[in-house]
Structures are given as C-alpha cells and as structure tokens.
Simulated assay, not measured.
Amino acid sequence: MDAATVAIIALLAERRSGESICPSEAARRIAAEASEADWRASMPIIHAAVDQLVDQNRISLSWKGQSLSARCGPYRIVQANDK
C-alpha cells in the first residue's frame, strides 16, 4: 500500500465507528512523516488514493450528511461498512 492509502486507513481506524475524516488530515500526516512543511503538496496523492479506495468499496464519501458517489468538491471520508 502507498503512503496515502496507509494514512487514510490508519486515520479511519483511529476513529469511532461512523466517524469521518477530512482528506487534509491524511495529507498532514504524510507531510509530518516526511518532515515536509506544506501538506497541500500531498493532496493530489490523497485524492488518487481516495478514488482507488472508493472504487474498491473500502470507503464512502459524504458532504454535510449527503452521500457522494464520487469525489467532487469538499468531502469527508468514512469506512464503507460504517455508513
């Protein structure tokens, strides 16, 4: 697994069932582990990992309580089985 996927899965595992994460949390984790100051540079790889995890039905996306079928605009991430 790549660092982005590991960060997303690890953050979700740290949350209670049904709680979501923001993709920027995963980007911040990757940046911190790499000692990089700008977490925003990690966002493209986070988005790619999110797309892959959605395709694998491992995660679901939502925004303000509404389910999203694909990444679009702002979104939150939750484990697929926690919907």
Results as ranks from 00 to 15, higher is better:
Ala4Asp: 13
Ser42Met: 14
Ala49Thr: 02
Arg40Gly: 11
Ser17His: 10
Pro44Asn: 09
Asp38Ser: 11
Leu61Ile: 08
Lys64Met: 06
Trp39Leu: 09
Lys64Val: 01
Gly18Arg: 05
Ala49Val: 04
Met1Trp: 04
Ile77Ser: 00
Ala48Glu: 09
Ser20Arg: 11
Trp63Leu: 07
Val50Glu: 03
Arg16Gln: 08
Ile77Tyr: 00
Gly65Thr: 12
Ile77Gln: 05
Ala48Asn: 10
Met43Asn: 02
Arg76Thr: 12
Glu14Ile: 07
Gly65Trp: 13
Val6Ile: 13
Leu12Lys: 05
Ala7Glu: 03
Arg58Asp: 11
Gly18Asn: 07
Cys22Gly: 09
Ala3Arg: 14
Cys22Met: 11
Ala10Lys: 08
Glu14Lys: 06
Ile46His: 05
Arg15Val: 04
Leu53Tyr: 14
Leu53Thr: 07
Gln66Val: 10
Trp63Met: 09
Pro44Gln: 02
Ser17Gly: 01
Trp63Pro: 02
Leu61Ser: 01
Asp51Cys: 10
Ser60Phe: 13
Ala7His: 12
His47Glu: 09
Gln52Ala: 14
Ala34Ser: 15
Leu68Glu: 00
Ile9Gln: 13
Glu14Arg: 08
Ile59Val: 14
Gln66Ala: 09
Leu11Trp: 01
Ala13Cys: 09
Leu12Pro: 01
Ser62Lys: 05
Glu25His: 06
Ile59Cys: 10
Ala34Arg: 15
Ile8Arg: 06
Ile77Pro: 01
Ala41His: 06
Ala26Asn: 07
Ala4Lys: 12
Leu53Arg: 10
Glu33Ser: 09
Leu53Ser: 08
Leu53Asp: 02
Ala32Pro: 02
Ala70Leu: 07
Ser62Gln: 15
Ala27Ser: 14
Pro44His: 00
Ser69Gln: 06
Tyr75Ile: 05
Gly65Arg: 05
Ile46Thr: 03
Ala27Lys: 03
Gln56Phe: 03
Pro44Met: 07
Ala4Gly: 02
Ala70Ile: 08
Trp63Lys: 10
Leu11Asn: 13
Pro44Tyr: 01
Arg16Lys: 15
